[in-house]
């Protein structure tokens, strides 16, 4: 099925003045479309965690968001260092965030598990040296 419309966003590396803007924009659109508030919140949280990971760990990247009648699909991709051990990265508490990032409040090692908890579907693809792709699907109905 074709999407009703799509949005693309650039996610600049290490620029916290705009980090989260893609998620914020999608949240606004979903609210305008009249999507159920709890679904908007889960979508925003899942997308924000993936977006901020691209900012912090992935040297920045891109977001592609496709809106369908019954669902939204979100792809956050980067060409950063990738993830060596996905299972380990998924564990709550595991984080490689450096001190300057932790000082801002990131680095609890909970972002990926937040995505898993909030997304209806979540696929994490990553290859060391190539980059990371986070696929999130949210059902709207």
């Amino acid at each position: 099925m074709n999407s009703l419309f799509r949005k693309e966003y650039e996610i600049p590396a290490n620029d916290f003045s705009v980090a989260g803007e893609a998620s914020s924009s999608v949240r606004k659109l979903l609210n305008q479309l009249g999507v159920d508030p709890p679904i908007v919140k889960r979508t925003s949280i899942a997308m924000y965690e993936a977006e901020i990971n691209a900012v912090i760990h992935g040297n920045g990247g891109k977001a592609l968001v496709q809106f369908f009648e019954d669902k939204v699909t979100i792809l956050i991709s980067d060409e950063g260092p990738g993830i060596e051990d996905i299972e380990l990265a998924m564990q709550e508490g595991y984080s490689t965030a450096p001190d300057r990032i932790r000082e801002m409040g990131f680095g609890a090692g909970m972002g990926l598990s937040n995505i898993k908890k909030n997304a209806d579907e979540f696929v994490l693809e990553s290859e060391p040296g190539k980059g990371t792709r986070v696929h999130i699907t949210m059902y709207l109905l």
Binding site: S17, S23, K41, G105, F106, M110, G111
Partner: peptide
Amino acid sequence: CDLLSMAMVGVKDGNLWITVHTNINIIA
């Protein structure tokens, strides 16, 4: 809570959120 991704889970609608962080990320 001062861990942002924990606050992401813990802050419920309408909550008053207390944090010692003052950097720009708390707004998102």
